[in-house]
Write a protein that binds this DNA or RNA. Structure first.
Lengths: 168, 168
DNA sequence: ATTGTTGGTTCTATTTTGGAACTCATTATC
DNA sequence: GATAATGAGTTCCAAAATAGAACCAACAAT
């Protein structure tokens, strides 16, 4: 299975990995949220090669996560800005940073923080259900296959594994 | 900059990318949440090569996201289970799936869903602040550098970019 | 005795990255 | 007026990662 095949995958998570499933893309997005918009800004701050950066920016643009727009003429120069899709990625970034900080070994204090726009107080993120307000985590939510995928070992494998004790 | 250098990076997000910053790891984790625990289960359902799967499982184990434990002797066989860290990754997975489904082009209905354990109702995830209950998104939260990193173009670049109009 | 299952490892070929140098348009400096 | 600097890439080659397939080992089942 090749890299780009993921973009056609039925699973949204798999398609997401086609976009952000590499070492740099998420960090580029982080820089966007920090306010960086220009090629050299990303390049200098991340240390990514110009080659890959150009490639990643192109992909993010193709996926409509970033948009490229001119900020001056003579010489013509473009900057990259988050689109609506890009902005809606904020909660993912936040959840991930929270996870990394609390659950990954060797945690050092983060070089940046998330604060409320009104007041600047640091935030403590929890995922909740919009309707019930209930906290969403591995104890309250269950992931279930919503349809079987014919031709794969999908069902057979799960059927065999689940009965032992529903994987918590 | 090499792959593994990220694991030593100060930024938790960068370290997270050292773990899940590839095409497969997140999908392996998804399978874990669906109840898959064995090598062949992952391999058949994902189509990843056995080579890479072994490598990824080893890394997830090293990062204490998964643990390898024997489920039988004669012949000795091991299964992979989510650790506490692994389980706490659930909100990230949920937020990401939600983002992919709503914000990525070509969205097809997902082959699996997140439902509440009590009742099985589909969930509608929102990230909120544990203290204020306020919704957390690009309009309510701001990402700020919490310290400058000497030797990098960190400050210079941000200083130059931010004044124009705080990147929303 | 042969085949099947589970959980890997090893091998080679192909893709992706990393790193550095080069281009082009335009502005700033000596 | 010549030379350097800026910004945004592109091109080229070497190094690393991934894909795909074959192989191995410990048993169990037929």
């Amino acid at each position: 299975m090749k890299w780009h095949d993921l973009n056609d995958d039925a699973c949204p998570l798999a398609r997401a990995m086609g976009v952000i499933g590499d070492r740099w893309t998420l960090l580029i997005l982080r820089e966007c949220f920090l306010g960086v918009r220009r090629f050299d800004g990303f390049q200098k701050r991340l240390g990514v090669t110009r080659h890959l950066l150009a490639e990643r920016l192109k992909r993010l643009e193709a996926m409509e996560v970033l948009e490229r727009r001119p900020y001056q003429e003579r010489p013509l120069r473009h900057e990259y800005r988050l689109t609506a899709s890009g902005k809606s990625f904020a909660p993912v970034l936040l959840a991930m940073q929270d996870w990394a900080q609390h659950s990954l070994p060797n945690a050092e204090p983060s070089p940046f923080a998330f604060v409320t726009r009104d007041g600047g107080a640091p935030v403590d993120p929890v995922l909740t259900d919009r309707n019930s307000g209930q906290e969403l985590n591995h104890r309250t939510v269950l992931m279930v296959p919503s349809k079987s995928v014919p031709g794969t070992a999908f069902d057979a494998d799960l059927q065999r594994l689940e009965p032992k004790s529903a994987g918590s």
